[in-house]
Amino acid sequence: MIPAKYKTLLFAFVLVIYQLPQKIVAQNYEHLANNLHKQIQKHFYLPRGVYYREFADSVAPQHKVSYLWSLCALWQADNEMEKLLPRGNLLRKDFSVIEKYNDNAAPAPGFDSYPGEFKKEDRYYDDNQWIGLTAMDAYKRTNQQFYLNVGEKIYRFMMTGFDTVSGGGLYWKEGDKSTKNTCSNGPGIILALQLYQATKKQTYLDTALMLYGWVNKHLEAPTGLYYDNLKITSNTVAKYQFSYNTGTMLQSNVYLYECTRQQKYLNEANRIADASLNYFYAKGMFRDDYWFNAVLLRAYQQLLKYNPDKRYILAFKNCVDNALHNDVNANGLMGKTKSLNLVAQGGMLEILARFAWMQKMHYF
């Protein structure tokens, strides 16, 4: 028989061991990123038409080339790759494809979800915003006016999706006034703040604060995460909770702290990070799509500047390593049991490139 006091000590010891971080798997993330990038170019790029395909095995024959959303994922990933390979010239190659989706229709120029030479489809505010965010990241990194011009173009387009119905906020899709979504307001806040940092124009900060207040009023969940959208006609909320929506709102708070130095925004960022860690990464496996998680990783990485606690990054890393172990197919692409589109491949490429950079900076 073990005396009661020793049972208590043994239980405490086991509890401490259980709570220790999982063993950090040794990965060369730069090598992994370079390999995935090579496979994406091999299996998705269509040099004759200067496009990318949506699926490597063409399981979507009704669409000859990829949607804009896929290029949003790839362009951001390639921005992170250019940080690793400064002379790679990846972004301009990507943008030569993105330009084929351009649509100068009133009320403002923007990018269609599918290239008009094949089929006229809708313009989504969030698709355009993802392009704008990458452009502004590239501007901050390179100081090239070209990227600032793209960011400003996207801002003008996204603001055509704003009205005062339901108290403000941006719609999700041009010509469709049925929903206002976190995915079209969260990145809108970030884009406005990036432009404010670049230009110091008060209009951009005012826009960011206006959109930020609207999202928190209508779409913040009691858990500290964020719901998907507000249905305008019924004034009801679609309560899906995706990692990318939480990611844009977490990152919005970090940017607001940078722009205003008000501690409340950093406190809010830390609170959202805690809530997201428990919900999305506690089980060591991704709950939703790779690209959705890449957007949340952007926020975690930026938060590291002000909160050195690495538990968010390390929990995320466990999920990455799990995916690398279980979900890489024979072609070196993500998707072992089912074909994944370019959005997913671009999402994982961005994740690997960001981890490669953090590995170089000795974050783990």
Rank of each mutant, 00 (worst) to 15 (best):
L195R: 00
F157Y: 15
Q145S: 15
V165H: 10
D126A: 11
A138D: 11
D127G: 09
G188V: 01
L191E: 07
Y155W: 13
K153I: 11
N128Y: 06
Y226K: 04
Q197C: 05
D137R: 15
K140V: 12
H218L: 03
N149H: 15
F162L: 14
A198E: 05
Q197S: 12
K200S: 06
G188M: 06
Q144A: 13
E117F: 09
L193I: 01
L195E: 03
L225M: 05
I190F: 01
C183G: 03
G175S: 11
L191H: 03
V165G: 08
Y139D: 08
T160L: 10
T182M: 01
G186N: 01
M159L: 14
A198C: 06
K119C: 13
Y196L: 04
G116L: 12
K153P: 08
F118G: 08
R156H: 14
E220M: 05
Y124Q: 09
Y204C: 04
G175M: 07
E152V: 15
K217T: 07
T182Q: 02
P115E: 08
Y139C: 08
G213C: 02
T142A: 12
L209N: 03
D137V: 09
W130H: 09
S184W: 02
L191F: 04
V215H: 02
Y212K: 02
L193M: 05
P187M: 05
K153N: 14
G188K: 00
K217L: 01
A221N: 02
L148M: 15
A221M: 02
T179A: 08
N216S: 02
W172Y: 10
K153L: 15
Y114K: 07
R123E: 11
V215R: 00
R156T: 14
Y139N: 09
G167M: 10
G168D: 08
K153E: 14
Y147E: 11
V215F: 02
K180D: 00
N143G: 12
K217C: 00
V215Q: 00
N216F: 00
Y227Q: 00
T134W: 10
C183V: 09
Y227G: 03
Q202Y: 01
Y227C: 04
A135K: 09
P222V: 08
L225T: 03
E117G: 08
D176R: 14
I189R: 02
